[in-house]
Amino acid sequence: MSNNCYLLQCRSTGEQLLVDAADEASTLLPLIGPDGLTAVVTTHQHWDHHRALGEVVAKTGAEVLVGAPDADAVTEQTGVPVTRTLSDGDTVSVGACSLSVIAIAGHTPGSVALVYDDPAGHPHLFTGDSLFPGGVGNTFGSSEAFEQLIEDVATKVFGRLADDTWFYPGHGDDSTLGAERPHLDEWRARGW
């Protein structure tokens, strides 16, 4: 599935957080290294975003954080208990750094994105499968889910964050909100 995983490390404390233990613990664990892992945030309940969760958590003892509406499904699919459920406006700490949680329903009911507002630069947004260069994530033919997703992305992401925000999706290339903002109306008209 060519998923993206993101390993974030606090420069002050060395603590680390993984966004999506998508696959291949044998690749992820050497990257995590001896410093260990504080937490894994699973951006949503789809199997391709948590295939390595069990092994990564077993080896590191990391907490498991999942959007509240997706938490039971992640545990059911992986056998890994969720340590903490996430809701819109929550914060996730990694060392001295703090990331804000944006709940973005539509791709799944409990999809979450994380924002790190870098005090020395621009914001960084980890979007899972809710936002990609060229559009929002798949809603599998549901017009209701698409309306929820496009509305959440328009108001909670583009309505809140500046154009210089760099975003990192669950698959494929990254982009900036400034590069994508002019296309919001096209995406809405296109639908899924």
Rank of each mutant, 00 (worst) to 15 (best):
Y6W: 07
L7G: 01
L8M: 10
L8C: 03
Q9R: 08
C10V: 03
R11Y: 00
R11M: 04
T13R: 06
E15D: 08
Q16P: 01
L18N: 04
V19W: 14
A21Q: 08
S26K: 14
L28E: 09
L29P: 08
L29Q: 09
L31Y: 05
I32P: 03
G33N: 02
G33W: 03
G33M: 05
L37K: 05
T38G: 12
A39G: 07
T42R: 06
H44K: 07
H44F: 09
D48T: 09
D48A: 06
H50E: 08
R51D: 11
R51G: 04
G54T: 13
E55Q: 13
V56I: 08
V56W: 07
G61Y: 15
G67N: 02
A68C: 06
P69C: 00
D72W: 11
T75N: 05
Q77L: 12
Q77N: 12
T78C: 12
T78E: 10
T78L: 13
G79T: 05
V80W: 09
P81T: 08
P81R: 12
T85R: 13
L86G: 02
G89T: 03
T91N: 11
T91A: 12
S98M: 13
S100A: 05
V101G: 04
I102S: 01
A103Q: 08
I104L: 01
A105I: 04
T108Y: 12
T108A: 10
P109I: 04
S111G: 04
D117G: 04
D117T: 08
P119E: 12
T127H: 10
D129M: 03
L131K: 04
T139V: 14
F140M: 14
F140V: 03
F140K: 15
G141T: 07
G141E: 09
E144K: 15
E147M: 15
E147N: 15
E147Y: 14
V153G: 02
V153H: 02
F158K: 11
F158V: 04
G159K: 01
D163R: 14
D163G: 13
F167T: 06
F167A: 10
G170H: 07
G170Q: 05
H171K: 10
H171P: 00
H171F: 03
H171S: 04
G172H: 14
G172A: 10
A179K: 11
R181Y: 06
H183P: 01
L184G: 01
E186G: 06
R188Q: 07
W192G: 14
